[in-house]
Structure formats: C-alpha cells, structure tokens
Computed example of a mutant assay.
Amino acid sequence: MKAFFRLVLTIIALAGALPAQADELRPGYLELTQQTQSEWKLVWKAPILGGLATRAEPLLPDFCQLKLETPRLSGPAVVATGKVSCSKPLEGATVGLKGMEPGSTDALLRVAPLGRPVQTERLIPDNSSYTVSTVPDGWQVARTYFVIGVEHILAGFDHLLFVIALVLLLQRGRPVVAAATAFTLAHSLTLAGTTLGLFGLPQAPVEATIALSIVFLAVEIVKASPGELRLSERLPWVVAFLFGLLHGFGFAGALREIGLPETDVPVALLTFNLGVEAGQLVIIAATLAVLGALARFAPTARRPAVIASTYAIGAVASFWFIERIWA
C-alpha cells in the first residue's frame, strides 16, 4: 500500500507542478531541406519556454553559410527561416544545435536531401548534433516519431491520469482492455483527421474538457458501489470512445507543436500513434499490477488506496480545468 501511495503521489506532484497546458509538447524543430546541389532551406522553430529560443542556434559545418531572415513569433515559439549555401555535400558532416544546456527542451532534427530518404534525429543537451548519413536508414522517421509518441503519453500527465483513472474504475483485465481499445480507436480517428486537416477544434476548450473528463472518471470511481453498476461501468467502452475522440484532438495539438515531415506524414503519423499506444499499454499494465499486488498482499487496503488516489487525481484535474478556462 505504501508503494502504491508513493507511485500515485509522485505522479500527482509532478502533474501539479506543470502549467495548465499539461498535454502539450514543445520541442524545438530544425529542418534542412535540399533545394539544389549546393542550396538548402532551413527552418528553425524554438519554443519560448524551455531555453531554446534564448540560448540555442543552428549548428552547421564550416563550409556552409547561413542567411537567416528576421525571426517571427508563431504562437508559443519563435520561427526563423533562411538559406544555407554549402560548397560541399552535407553527407558525413555534422549538423544540429549549439547552445543546448542541461534542462533545455529537446529538438527534432530533420534532414531532407534531394532524391534520398529523409533523416531524422532527436536532439537533447547531451547529444545535440548529428552526422548526416551517406546511406540513410529509411526507418529513421518511424523510430523517431514512435519514441516521441511514447514520451508524449508518459509525460502528458492529463492523458496519463485519464488512463490510470480508467483502470481504477474498472479494475479487471477484460473490461479495461475493451475500454482501452475503444479509447485507442477513437483518439486515432481524431488524431489522424485533425493532423490531415479534415476537421479540428480550438485547442483551449479541448484542453479544458480533457481535464473535465478526468474529473468525471474520478467522480464515477468514488460513487461506485458493489451491485449498483453506473453507466461508466455498464458501458465503459462507450464512455472511453467518446472521451477518446476528445483526447485525440489533444494528441493532435501536441503533434502540431512538433511538426510533421512534409514527405513522410503517413509514416510519422502512424508511428507517433503506435508510440502513444505502446506508452498507454505500459500505464495500464503497471496500474493493474499494482492493484493485483494490493489484492493479494493487502486486500483490505485496496479500496482505501483507490479512493485516496482518486481524490488526488480529481483534485489535480479540477485545478487544471479551472486554470485552463481562465487562461
């Protein structure tokens, strides 16, 4: 029981310390797209929060010259475009960012040579450069966006708390799997549709309603009683599907912040979503394992632990909802 409380309290503490937009990823984005044999187009997006906008800048080899246009503010990021002239091919050369300090936001690097596969790399303070491959791996985009998807569900605390609350409500393998499948199908639909420009919703009300969906589940858990199944327990897959549609808009907002490679949208979208699902399965398995351990070793403590955790989750979600509607 103590271990369970420590786990939940750690998540709650981290979640409560985050700003209202807990769902959004704000990495940097550096793109080099080859125009001719010696000319490249550079796009550099640096989020205002996270240190990249004030400290980091593109790193190019000595045989390349950058002419940068005046940066502009685009939402929560500074965006700059420019032309890069290189006297030699970039293959084997090092590109990336300089000035990334410990604690800085990550950045996604995309290098798109003419007539060859796109190369992508996740830049972090400890590994902020990349050597352009002579023969690039065609699976680089897939791997990069899969990892980003996993990290998003694990670091996007509102989605994390929603999935945990769903498991706490149902507490049994088969109903949890059915609800999780419905949630996956629903947010995959809205994620794909929004990312491809088929439809969309304003991000602010979406974020507020996502917080409210967590509050709803918390209320359902607290009010649950043996022999009196509530709607969310009788038809959990319906509830999960409806809220999944909403959460898909949230995932799309995060993916929009990252950016999609123009020529690799289907692969990036698919692998990002697969990464989200992989992270979601980890959350479900871990929560069920903790509940199973409580049932075996401390059965009388299971219900009090669930209720205490639910109140903590509901309190954080309520705070997010209030903060987001006033933001």
Rank of each mutant, 00 (worst) to 15 (best):
L30W: 01
L114Y: 10
A15K: 01
E31T: 11
E121L: 00
V95H: 04
C64F: 05
L25M: 15
A13D: 04
L97H: 10
L68A: 08
L32P: 01
V43C: 06
L123W: 00
L97D: 02
T81H: 12
D106K: 11
L25I: 14
L49G: 14
W139M: 13
P136A: 08
L123S: 03
K67H: 11
G92D: 09
L60T: 02
V141L: 05
T10V: 14
Q65P: 07
A17Y: 11
A112Y: 05
G96L: 05
V84I: 13
G115A: 09
L14P: 01
M100E: 05
T10D: 08
L49Y: 12
P89R: 03
P113F: 08
P89T: 11
T134D: 06
T81R: 14
P27K: 08
W40Y: 15
V8C: 07
V132F: 11
Q119I: 00
L7W: 01
C86T: 11
G51T: 00
L7T: 09
P47M: 02
L60V: 01
K67R: 14
Q37N: 12
L14S: 06
Y29S: 13
D126E: 14
G138R: 15
V8F: 00
T10Q: 08
R26E: 05
R122E: 12
L59N: 07
L49C: 07
T134P: 01
Q119H: 11
G50E: 03
D137L: 10
F63W: 08
T105R: 12
L109I: 05
Q34R: 10
A13N: 05
G115E: 04
